[in-house]
């Protein structure tokens, strides 16, 4: 995916956050809390648990469906994280060769299980994060984090990261374009070229950071980002949403739902 396309996709998520659905209207804190609970309960499962991860997919699916977010967009965006995930887990099947279970003639090793588990967890986590952005908006998430007690210093960093990623990507796009025009679009930059492109981008970024800081100081900035508009309330709808999500997530964390369903299905056929 080209830099420009990645930027367009990111903007699409931002556009989706401006929709008006019951899920969009909920106070951002409810959605952030539910997502944190989802991440904690999913990530705390054992490393060989694969089947038990599957019921967790209901949460991002629910967010996407209720929030009118196309699942294809989420999956496409989440696929961008795949190379990094593969890097993390690729050697597990080589190192952990203890056979954990047999699927017919196929012996499944611990490494294969943990690799699948890493892959599934990452995809679930990234998809949920993207769905949260698409139904809440990044700035609302930051505001919710601030109201939940995140220190202002981290909050400002997050807000700026998101605001200037567009400027930075545009700048990187211009540099890549200028390079392509001078050495043929077909050739990819060499490692050496990447080094100088990144170095130059870093210097431009530092320059811009200095100017942005000056612009903020000129308008009275003293370390805390001011909050504009009336804050939303954490009311009954938010409480109901948190309770429903919380109960489901706790249930799938405590009970082995696929095993229970499998047992019940087995009982029916017996």
């Amino acid at each position: 995916m080209s830099i420009e396309n990645a930027l367009l996709e990111l903007r699409r998520l931002d556009d989706l956050a401006h929709q008006d659905t019951p899920l969009h209207r909920l106070d951002a804190r409810a959605k952030v809390l539910a997502t944190v609970l989802f991440l904690v309960s999913m990530l705390s499962l054992g490393r060989y648990e694969v089947a038990r991860l599957l019921p967790f997919a209901a949460f991002p699916w629910l967010l996407a469906t209720l929030g009118g977010v196309p699942l294809s967009l989420l999956l496409r965006r989440a696929a961008l994280a795949l190379p990094f995930v593969l890097m993390v887990g690729i050697f597990n099947p080589l190192f952990d060769r203890t056979v954990q279970l047999h699927l017919g003639p196929l012996a499944v090793t611990g490494g294969m299980l943990s690799f699948s588990s890493i892959l599934l967890r990452s995809m679930l986590a990234v998809t949920t994060g993207l769905a949260l952005v698409a139904v809440t908006g990044f700035d609302n998430i930051c505001r919710a984090l601030g109201r939940l007690g995140m220190p202002s210093l981290f909050l400002v960093q997050l807000q700026f990261l998101y605001r200037y990623i567009f400027v930075l990507v545009e700048e990187a796009g211009r540099m890549m374009h200028a390079r392509a025009l001078r050495c043929g679009a077909a050739t990819r930059p060499s490692l050496r070229e990447y080094r100088s492109l990144l170095g130059s981008l870093l210097l431009r970024t530092l320059d811009r950071a200095g100017r942005v800081h000056q612009a903020m100081l000129c308008r009275g900035f003293s370390g805390t980002m001011p909050e504009y508009g009336m804050p939303t309330r954490f009311g009954r709808a938010e409480l109901r949403f948190c309770l429903a999500c919380g109960l489901y997530l706790l249930a799938v964390r405590i009970f082995d739902l696929p095993l229970l369903l499998g047992g019940m299905a087995g009982g029916l056929f017996r």
Partner: peptide
């Protein structure tokens, strides 16, 4: 550069 001044959402 107005981009230096417009940093809010």
């Amino acid at each position: 550069d107005p981009d230096d001044m417009l940093f809010m959402p």
